[in-house]
Nucleic acid binder design. Structure first.
Lengths: 145, 145
DNA sequence: CCCTTTGACGAAACAAGTTTTCAATTGAAA
DNA sequence: TTTCAATTGAAAACTTGTTTCGTCAAAGGG
C-alpha cells in the first residue's frame, strides 16, 4: 500500500499539486480497500479515520486519482459512479453476479486479442474498453444435481 | 415498425397494463428512431408529434419498454442514460468514438463465444453482458500516409 | 522574519437527471 | 353503463455530483 501512496504523491508533486493530510488519508483509504467503492462509500470510510474531511475533498481527490491512472471508474450502477484502484492489477474485465452483487475480475489475453481484432477490423483505433458480464456466480447459480 | 409496436401492446396487455394514446405515441417514436437516444431526446421527439405528453410519462413508458426487453439501456455517458431499441437487431456491442461521439454497432459470433467461454470457465452462468470499446473511428483516427 | 502568492479546504448553493406525490382522468372489464 | 385500478402531468422531492465563495495554510521571495 505504501508503494501506491508514494506513487500518488509523486504524481501530485509533478503536477504542482499540494500534498495535504486529507489527500494522504483519502489515498491511503483507497489503496487499503481491495474492492469497488462509490465516492460516498469512500467518504464514509475516510470519515472513520479522519472526521474532518469534507465530501467535496473526497470527490476532488478521487478526480486526481483517476487522473493519475491509479484508479478507474467503472459505471456499473446507473446514476452512481463506482471506482476501484488498479495499482498492481492491470486492465481487466468484470463478472457481476446479478443475485448477490459480487464482482469478480476477469483477465484474459485471448479475450483482449479478439476484442482488438474485431474493433480494428472495422477501422477503429482502440484506446480502451469496458466489458461487464452479468450472470450468476458459482455460489448463486442453481446447483447441477 | 408496426410489428414492434404491436409486440409492445401485447406485452402491456399481458402485464395488465393499459394501452393509452401516450404510450402508443412514445412506442412508435422509439421504434421509428434507428439510433441511440436519451430520455430527454425522446421526450422532445414525442412532443413534436403530440405536445400533450409529459416528460414523466416518457420516463415511465421507457421503463416498460426496457422491461419488455425491446429497449436496452446503454449507460455510455455518465449521469445520463442512453437507450436504443433492439427489435430486429439482436445483441451487439458498441464501438464508441471518443472524438466525434459516433457509436457503431458490432456483432461478432467469435467475440460472443470467447466471452461466454471465459465467463463459464470461472463458474459463472452468463445472463447478459455489455462491451463498450472506446477509440477513434475511421474518420477521426490519424490517417496512415 | 514577514509578506505575498497559490492552491486547498469545507459549507452551502447549485445543476442535471430522474423519481415520487397527488388530484384528476381514463381505459377496459363486468 | 358502471366501476375501479391504472394512468396522467405538474410540481415537488430526491440523488449524485459540481461550482462558488470566504477562509486558511504552506512555500518562496524580499
Amino acid at each position: 500500500m505504501q508503494r501506491e501512496v508514494e506513487q500518488f504523491c509523486d504524481f501530485l508533486r509533478k503536477k504542482g499539486l499540494k500534498l495535504t493530510p486529507q489527500r494522504l488519508r483519502i489515498a491511503e483509504t483507497v489503496f487499503v480497500t481491495h474492492r469497488h467503492f462509490t465516492a460516498d462509500q469512500l467518504y464514509e470510510l475516510v470519515k472513520k479515520v479522519e472526521p474532518l474531511v469534507g465530501k467535496v475533498t473526497v470527490y476532488r481527490t478521487l478526480e486526481h486519482l483517476v487522473d493519475s491512472g491509479m484508479v478507474e471508474e467503472l459505471s456499473i450502477n446507473k446514476g452512481v459512479s463506482t471506482y476501484e484502484h488498479v495499482a498492481g492489477h492491470g486492465h481487466h474485465d468484470h463478472l457481476i453476479c446479478v443475485h448477490c452483487g459480487k464482482i469478480v475480475e476477469l483477465s484474459s489475453e485471448r479475450l483482449e486479442k479478439v476484442k482488438n481484432e474485431e474493433a480494428e477490423g472495422r477501422g477503429f483505433q482502440v484506446l480502451s474498453h469496458s466489458l461487464k458480464i452479468y450472470g450468476l456466480c458459482p455460489d448463486c447459480r442453481p446447483k447441477s444435481t
